[in-house]
Nucleic acid binder design. Structure first.
Length: 276
DNA sequence: AGAGATACCTGGGAGC
DNA sequence: TGCTCCCAGGTATCTC
């Protein structure tokens, strides 16, 4: 399941391969992913030199000359790979983008939670308007303890839900939210507004550290994620609590608890992560 | 406006 | 073996 480190891994691989090339044909094999694919195949995106591949939150932006771009999201199960055009199409490869050099960029997504949207940029290097409401990048200096404390202030929603709110900070999904809260000793059920500044400092540090470690490891592989070359991420080996209900806490040995927060599975140690 | 619930989707695993 | 049921979860959208 791609979270920010996985998307960053894909972005780095694509940015090495795509710039300088251009799409000459786009084939779609289903009418829609999360959004209809209808406008992809025609006109505006073809025969434009690809300038760069960028990432914002969990979105990928393939920027082309003339302020055109492809906005991609991998959703839950999306993967991108670059293979020769002659390679047989896999069952869930819903979009095949042919490059002028005979390679294809292929979007595979069994659950179809991802999307590919054509968009127009107001200027080169600028994010599309579709991404305007996003909060700061977690690895940027804008994501600081003071910022998070202010963003949480007055919020009654659970700290875990708030940490996964893209308007507060982007790219922190369920796995990393669970892990960061564990490392910070914060109970995920705590109302966001009750987390003191001192714990916001710990939380910000641990979100950054967890994401950086995961990026270094090439992403977290639970079952679906693969890099552009098909390699699996290795971060799953470093998880402390995610998916480990009933197992002993790595710090104190207490059984890891599982509870649903906002409909999502949440894992924590009731001893190391006391509720406020 | 903030908070919570729901829909979207399908493969994989558990249970019978 | 084969069926049904439940779960995974980011995001948009709905309701209260």
């Amino acid at each position: 399941m791609p979270e920010l480190p996985e998307v960053e891994t894909v972005k780095r691989a694509l940015d090495k391969r795509l710039p300088g090339h251009e799409f000459v044909k786009i084939d779609t094999y289903v009418p829609a992913l999360r959004f209809p694919l209808g406008s992809l195949g025609d006109h505006a995106l073809l025969h434009r030199k690809i300038m760069a591949v960028r990432r914002r939150a969990r979105y990928l932006i393939v920027e082309m000359e003339g302020c055109r771009a492809l906005l991609l999201h991998l959703g839950m199960t999306g993967t991108l790979r670059i293979v020769p055009a002659v390679a047989p199409r896999l069952k869930h490869e819903h979009v095949v983008l042919l490059l002028e050099n005979g390679d294809t960029l292929r979007f595979e997504d069994p659950r179809r939670f991802g999307f590919i949207l054509p968009c127009v940029l107001s200027a080169p290097g600028v994010d599309p308007k579709e991404l305007a409401a996003l909060g700061p990048e977690p690895l940027s200096d804008d994501f600081s303890a003071e910022y998070l404390y202010q963003a949480f202030k007055g919020r009654k929603t659970r700290v875990k839900t708030a940490l996964m709110d893209n308007s507060i900070v982007v790219g922190v999904g369920n796995i990393y939210a669970n892990e960061s809260l564990f490392l910070s000793g914060i109970n995920p059920l705590t109302p966001a507004g009750k987390v003191p500044l001192s714990q916001c400092e710990l939380l910000v540090d641990n979100v950054k550290a967890t994401l950086r470690r995961a990026i270094d490891a090439g992403g977290t592989t639970i079952s679906d994620f693969k890099g552009v070359d098909g390699s699996e991420g290795k971060f799953v080996l470093q998880l402390n609590v995610y998916g480990k209900s009933g197992e002993p806490c790595p710090k104190c040995g207490t059984e890891i608890a599982r509870v649903a927060i906002g409909g999502r599975s949440s894992f924590y140690c009731s001893r190391c992560q006391k509720e406020q």
